[in-house]
């Protein structure tokens, strides 16, 4: 075997490090870093943090550095919806309300659902899009000894958290504008369920995107129709005939209806929750599968 160039390893700039530097294993630990017992002998090392935690951790770092900016962006679009639809044309929209409901009562849960949807889905979609196709830092996640399920779950939770936070901000703002609202436990559960569903939806879309054009396509063909038709700003009953049935294919429709029913104090509608849960399972499973099939 040829001597691999007998260079004297003498570090200078930019490796300013002391030559006597040496690492030693800490007592009682093995050197392998996984959470499973290591075969080379030694004490079992376990790690109690869930494997998806780093994804959330990274998200929190971004929050920390841009908290106020995020807060402003979360507040702006719901505020626009409320001001323009609720207080602006809302008084004139009273006549389209089925069953004499006040339009504002109708709008508030819709706007909350939209906040959950927009922020939950787009935040995770954009993050995946950029880290996967642009910065390629998604690879470092794929190289971690973490199951695809955990990765999928981590991203879903990151999106859900983002959506949930936006939803809470909206709710707080709504309180200032419409103090008569009475959120309850059922409403909170509905919010959790919806945000998780949208997180999973975001993961699926994020994994399916192949280019910038895809992103535009998705926003035109999925986000815009879903935003406007899903019973958020206009009652489903007032849509043209065939659309009334078609919109139940959007995940936002059951979410908005569930939020509306629970906020009105009508109890937890099991059927709506089941539809939403079904979508969650479908999105999550497809995202998981897509991640598993990822190649290249």
């Amino acid at each position: 075997m040829p001597a691999p160039a007998k260079q004297t390893v003498k570090r200078q700039e930019p490796f300013e490090v002391s030559p006597g530097f040496k690492l030693r294993p800490a007592k009682g630990t093995t050197t392998a870093s996984s959470g499973v017992p290591v075969t080379t002998g030694g004490v079992k090392v376990s790690c109690f943090l869930p494997p998806w935690y780093p994804i959330i951790w990274e998200e929190m770092i971004y929050w920390r550095s841009k908290f106020w900016l995020y807060l402003a962006t979360y507040m702006l679009s719901p505020l626009l919806f409320l001001l323009s639809f609720g207080f602006g044309v809302g008084r004139r929209l009273q006549m389209i309300m089925p069953g004499g409901m006040s339009y504002l009562d109708f709008l508030v849960p819709g706007v909350v659902a939209l906040a959950l949807f927009n922020n939950g889905v787009t935040s995770v979609t954009i993050r995946m899009f950029y880290t996967r196709l642009f910065w390629q830092s998604f690879e470092s996640y794929r190289l971690a000894p973490v199951s695809n399920f955990s990765l999928c779950l981590g991203y879903t939770l990151a999106g859900a958290m983002r959506g949930l936070f936006a939803g809470l901000v909206v709710l707080f703002m709504v309180f200032l504008l419409v103090p008569s609202l009475r959120p309850n436990g059922n409403f909170a559960v509905a919010m959790l369920l919806a945000s998780f569903c949208f997180g999973a939806f975001g993961v699926l879309i994020g994994l399916c995107l192949r280019s910038f054009d895809d992103q535009a396509l998705v926003s035109e063909f999925i986000f815009v129709p879903v935003t406007f038709l899903s019973g958020t700003l206009i009652p489903v009953e007032r849509l043209p005939g065939f659309l009334q049935h078609l919109v139940w294919l959007f995940p936002l429709t059951p979410a908005a209806e569930l939020l509306r029913a629970t906020l009105a104090g009508n109890g937890f509608n099991g059927q709506l929750a089941a539809v939403l849960g079904g979508w969650t399972v479908v999105f999550f499973a497809l995202g998981w599968l897509k991640l598993k099939m990822l190649d290249g």
């Binding site: 870093s33 943090l49 390629q136 830092s137 000894p145 973490v146």
Partner: peptide, 25 residues
């Protein structure tokens, strides 16, 4: 493929978390 908006140390910490390096280490 480092996370550009994180610092060098944060990048390493993220990796340590992903690879489940024990907390004390």
């Amino acid at each position: 493929n480092l996370e550009r908006e994180l610092t060098g140390r944060e990048n390493l910490l993220l990796h340590a978390l992903l690879h489940r390096v024990p907390r004390g280490e």
